[in-house]
Computed example of a mutant assay.
Amino acid sequence: MAATRRSERESVNLFSDYHMHPQGHRLQRYDSALLDPWSKAARERGIRDFAITDHDRYHEGVDFEAFRRWREQNDDLTIRMGIELDNDPQSSEAGVAWVQRNWEKLDFVLGSVHFLDNWPFDRAGEDVGFSRRPIEEIYREYAVALRKLVERGWIDCLAHLDLIKIFGFRPKTDFLGYFEEVLVLAREKDLALEISTAGWRKPVGEAYPDEAILRRAKDLGIPFTLASDAHSPFHIGEDYDRLAQLLEKLGIREVALFQSHERRLVPLAAVG
């Protein structure tokens, strides 16, 4: 099975992963002990171009000098310095200010919505919140939060666009309609859109975002990054065999890479 997965992934050369969290979900200082397992795992999995994107609420642990040394020690890999900027009601204001101060030191900034007011809807045990209001109302509120995130700026790419589906709750009709305005706005702002395998290991059991959203984004000319949203080195490049099949199905043949916020598109050319 492992050999089959490796063959399928290499057939379309999925070599990038632009969503990784060495800190996990706690404040940890960047040093070799924290970062070395990530470069080792990326190398073993054939991921040659990747971005470290810890949550902005833990920005105090980001040490640019330690990151620079680690990148130099792994110069066979292309490692990008990034951050994930979300809408946490307690920390996002400070996170935006940190990104603004350090914009030139960063290669890549993800934007995401993890909160509806003070409700961290995607955390374990929070699925009960979806039964308290009509699902259509929750999706409308989520769409508004996404648009506010894009309008706030200081991001290069939108992460897991339909994260709100994480527990499998969704409107019965017009799923794409809730995301149309944010897709158009993202195109206007020249943002990329992440295709994430993380949903396959969540209760919803499907990639982020939905295929209908990906088709619409492709029609709009929005470029895509690839991501695992790894919170452990073991998740780097996870389910990239399934991702390869999804990209082939949708006719997505290039991937967006970033350096100092400058984007370039690279073909996912067949290997061998």
Rank of each mutant, 00 (worst) to 15 (best):
F15P: 00
T53M: 02
Q23L: 08
R5W: 09
A66P: 01
G24P: 01
F50T: 05
H19F: 04
G61C: 09
G82E: 03
Q73R: 15
P89W: 08
S16T: 15
Q90G: 07
D17A: 03
A33G: 13
L34D: 03
D31C: 12
R29C: 05
D31Q: 07
L14A: 00
L27P: 00
V12E: 01
D76T: 08
Y18D: 01
V12I: 15
R26W: 09
V62K: 09
E65Q: 10
E60I: 02
P89K: 06
F64G: 07
P22V: 10
L85R: 07
M81F: 10
D17P: 03
G24S: 05
D56P: 00
S7D: 12
N74C: 02
N87T: 10
R6N: 12
G24Y: 05
N74F: 04
P89M: 12
H21K: 10
M20T: 15
R68P: 00
V62A: 04
Y18P: 02
N87K: 08
A51E: 01
D56M: 11
N13S: 14
T53C: 04
R9V: 15
I47S: 00
D76K: 02
V62F: 13
H59S: 11
P89N: 07
D56G: 02
S16L: 10
D31Y: 11
F64E: 01
T78M: 07
S7E: 12
D88V: 12
A41E: 14
I79R: 07
I52R: 04
E8V: 15
L27Q: 05
S32Q: 12
N74D: 01
D75S: 15
S11M: 11
D88N: 15
Y18T: 03
L14E: 01
W70P: 00
D56L: 04
R43M: 11
A2F: 14
L34H: 06
E84S: 11
T78D: 10
P89C: 09
F50C: 01
L85Y: 09
R80M: 06
I83R: 06
P37L: 07
I83M: 12
Q28G: 02
A41M: 13
T78Y: 03
M20I: 14
R9E: 13
V12R: 13
V12H: 02
S7T: 14
R48A: 04
D36Y: 05
E84N: 08
R29L: 06
P22C: 13
G61P: 01
T4W: 08
F67V: 04
